[in-house]
Design a protein around this nucleic acid. Structure first.
Lengths: 221, 221
DNA sequence: CCACATAATACTGTATCCATAATTATGGAA
DNA sequence: TTCCATAATTATGGATACAGTATTATGTGG
């Protein structure tokens, strides 16, 4: 449809679905009606089905043969499994990133960090989210390991399935900020080992916050 | 076609293609002719294309919009990126596996290890490969972390793209066996930290062997 | 009134068909 | 002869059509 965009339709559809899933508009467990969705998007089922295959490979949906497609339900156990893994992976990113970072890179990182500080001061939660994501992402890019990056991003997608995950940050904005300061400091000091440790704890601290929410809320997912 | 198998056609096709890619019958860089393949398998292009989407998500092929599908070419840099990552991940598996392993589990592992010993003694390389895979796989399962497992297996699929990867083991069968003995010993001693270290070195030692092959062969992939 | 069997319906999975874009081949001009 | 433009061919991407199975509804028998 758009000749400027060389991207296939199934990819666009996949992205739209991802957004709807992350926004919890399509909640875990819900069945995805191919016909209705195709109609809704004004496309045929073919590209839609291809998009679903992609999402299934990412773990966002589950394809049950002859029974249709369902948004993946993520259990508390899954979260407990994923967080330590992410902690390890992002910590590794931090090490490599510090090693590879040139002064200009650290300055760039600092700029993003400033946005985090500002968002925190002004209490703009969504801006905080945004800057937080970019901060982590930038570090992952600095690590300069394509596969490490891809693994982390895949897992992050899965984490975003959980509504609790996004909620958890809100309750610990200040603490998260402190941790980011420590990470930033390690980068400015060129302290790879320190960055590794602090990043690791930062992630685990995220899990703890989430666990507390779960305990209060009582629900398993 | 087979009513006992509740598996969809696109999945079977994906698996068949995987095997052909791993067997290097479809070598990296080669273009995949949808029509010819569909004809070959006696199916329509629809399930084949869905299968390709899955393989693309796994990183085994690359889908260039409007330009077709190509088997992924893996660079030396990719291997250098993946091996340390795998070392970290499998080492983590080893830790968790030792912690979770019950005596019966260790015995099972020992049984697989014995097959490795036998294969080595009899010089049966393919049997060695087989047992080696199962040994690692069993440990990964013992770690009991669904996501860790999935990440490792995804990366392993990518590694299998490289012909050098399979070749490298042949040249260091004895050394690999020694390392496996050390891993086995750590399990029998219930030494989690030891298992972690040994497993980590085991993987890195695999990379070294591969690097040597590359240096000799001279080719980048 | 409930349970089970059978029929109707709806959805998934696969095949076929068509449009559009890319590649290749062919012809002409420099 | 070589380069470029244009036409023909071929392959990809998407839409539509069809077959088969799971689910649901309905009716009958206990």
């Amino acid at each position: 449809m758009n000749r400027i965009a060389p991207t296939a339709l199934y990819q666009e559809v996949a992205e739209r679905l991802r957004q709807r899933i992350f926004a919890h508009e399509l909640t875990p467990g819900t069945w995805i009606d191919e016909q209705k969705l195709a109609e809704q998007y004004g496309i045929s089922r073919t590209p839609l089905r291809e998009a679903l295959k992609v999402l299934a490979a990412e773990g966002l949906v589950e394809l049950k043969p002859r029974r249709g497609c369902y948004v993946t339900e993520i259990s508390r156990q899954d979260l407990d499994d994923i967080f330590p893994l992410m902690a390890m992976l992002e910590a590794r990113c931090a090490v490599e990133a510090v090693r590879h970072a040139k002064p200009a890179d650290v300055r760039d990182l600092k700029t993003i960090h400033e946005r985090l500080e500002a968002a925190s001061r002004e209490g703009r939660i969504d801006a905080f989210f945004e800057a937080n994501q970019e901060f982590h992402r930038r570090i992952q890019e600095l690590a300069n390991n394509r596969w490490l990056l891809s693994v982390i991003q895949d897992l992050r997608k899965v984490l975003k399935l959980s509504r609790l995950h996004s909620l958890s940050l809100e309750g610990r904005l200040q603490q998260s900020l402190e941790e980011h300061r420590a990470i930033m400091a390690a980068f400015e000091a060129g302290d790879a080992a320190g960055a590794e440790r602090v990043m690791h704890d930062h992630l685990l601290s995220g899990r703890d916050a989430l666990a507390r929410i779960q305990d209060v809320g009582g629900k398993a997912a």
